[in-house]
């Protein structure tokens, strides 16, 4: 009896090829695009901190230590190198445990932190823009 009606515009949206997270959005719209001197900027909340974190994440001591840690925990078996002593005691996949994502960027952490904020937005109806009378050609 009841018919499940998909939300308006369902299926017909021009594709975003893959889900782009908040981190991707930040990468794009805070850093790129036209800037015109004439406009007045209103206050921005939280953005400066996020973007600063993004810059720092490449090549900091913290990054170095995380890389070193990841290497230290690397499963030696996958390296085709003879290090018998260490190997014999640890055939299990050490590298999948604690070190998983050990070198993950601050950017992703920031994205995750704000993910709950994103949840509500996903429901909103999709806006559309189109050209007037372009169908004729």
């Amino acid at each position: 009896m009841t018919v499940a009606v998909p939300p308006a515009g369902g299926g017909g949206l021009p594709g975003r090829s893959s889900g782009s997270g908040l981190a991707d959005v930040i990468d794009t719209i805070l850093d790129k695009g036209l800037v015109i001197d004439a406009y007045v900027r209103v206050s921005l909340v939280g953005i400066e901190i996020l973007t600063i974190d993004v810059r720092v994440v490449v090549a900091s001591v913290d990054t170095y230590l995380r890389f070193a840690e990841a290497v230290n925990r690397l499963d030696l078996a996958s390296q085709q190198q003879g290090l018998p002593d260490l190997l014999s005691s640890a055939p299990q996949k050490i590298a999948h445990g604690k070190s998983k994502g050990v070198a993950q960027g601050v950017l992703e952490a920031a994205g995750e932190k704000l993910q709950d904020l994103m949840a509500s937005y996903a429901e909103e109806p999709a806006p559309r823009t189109r050209r007037r009378q372009r169908e004729e050609d």
Binding site: L13, P14, R16, S20, L22, V25, I26, T28, I29, L30, D31, K32, G33, L34, V35, I36, V42, S43, L44, V45, G46, I47, L114, L117, M118, S120, Y121, E124, A126, P127, R128, T129, R130, R131
Partner: peptide, 29 residues
């Protein structure tokens, strides 16, 4: 104040959906 996650996403989504149909010069957030 502006700059919540929703604001950032609304800005990009509006522009990207427009860009799929018509030429758009995006302004920075």
């Amino acid at each position: 104040p502006l700059g919540r996650a929703q604001d950032l996403v609304a800005h990009e989504q509006l522009l990207d959906e427009a860009a799929a149909e018509v030429p758009v010069l995006p302004l920075r957030f």
